[in-house]
């Protein structure tokens, strides 16, 4: 993870101790990726070993303060000027689950896709409520922060992190739509009906009452 570089970048703003670093990190990311203080101190120890930070004494309450070294500054500069590598796609449980669902007999893939889409849409609605001012259910403990104050750079940072979650959820929903239509087309072709109207349903979906009853079940 990028905890190492993130802490170095924060220390560029001035010397800090562990709790402060965690607070600064979470102000920008809204606790989307919670950091525990243990993790912060372990990372600082490693950074010190590598010569990227150095101890700078303690404050009145005995907190050990760290500052960034010139080597640490170089590390941060390199981080900001190098694109994040996408060579190793992160393991995606949903893609793996779907890949197995389409090959294992007896799985209702259509229903799986529908349920996932509803769940992802609900998460997307939650993120959007947070963007609107955090007045509804919050997916992270950070819901009390207001991402809408344009004058606070930390708020801007967090609002961009939220946007990242929003776009990722949207991409997932588009992908699910895409899977659904590909599977339906495949089902039509497998049924040996070279149907000229590709959009035609097969099978015809349930009428509305049944479908809604299903939805209510899903919602439980």
């Amino acid at each position: 993870m990028s905890v190492k570089q993130a802490l170095l970048a924060l220390l560029e703003q001035g010397p800090m101790y562990g709790y402060q670093l965690r607070a600064e990190f979470e102000q920008r990311t809204g606790a989307t990726w919670p950091l525990n203080v243990g993790q912060v101190y372990t990372t600082l120890t490693r950074l010190e070993r590598d010569g990227l930070v150095a101890g700078a004494g303690a404050d009145d309450e005995g907190h050990v303060i760290y500052r960034v070294t010139p080597a640490g500054r170089d590390e941060v500069a390199a981080w900001f000027s190098t694109p994040v590598a996408r060579t190793q796609p992160p393991r995606d449980e949903l893609a793996i689950k779907l890949a197995l669902a389409v090959t294992v007999p007896g799985v209702d893939v259509g229903r799986m896709i529908q349920q996932q889409r509803t769940a992802t849409m609900t998460a997307l609605q939650d993120y959007t409520r947070l963007k609107r001012g955090g007045r509804a259910t919050t997916p992270t403990p950070s819901g009390d922060l207001d991402p809408n104050d344009p004058n606070d750079p930390n708020d801007l940072a967090w609002s961009l992190v939220l946007d990242s979650l929003v776009f990722a959820a949207e991409a997932e929903i588009r992908w699910l739509d895409h899977c659904e239509s590909r599977l339906r087309r495949a089902a039509v072709e497998n049924a040996g009906r070279p149907d000229p109207v590709v959009e035609r349903p097969s099978p015809v979906p349930e009428p509305v009452e049944t479908a809604k009853a299903e939805t209510t079940e899903t919602a439980r």
Partner: peptide, 15 residues
């Protein structure tokens, strides 16, 4: 969510 003229799914508050 509509599909082929039918409401197949609904997400959000108090359906």
């Amino acid at each position: 969510f509509l599909r082929d003229g039918v409401v197949v799914d609904e997400s959000g508050s108090d359906p």
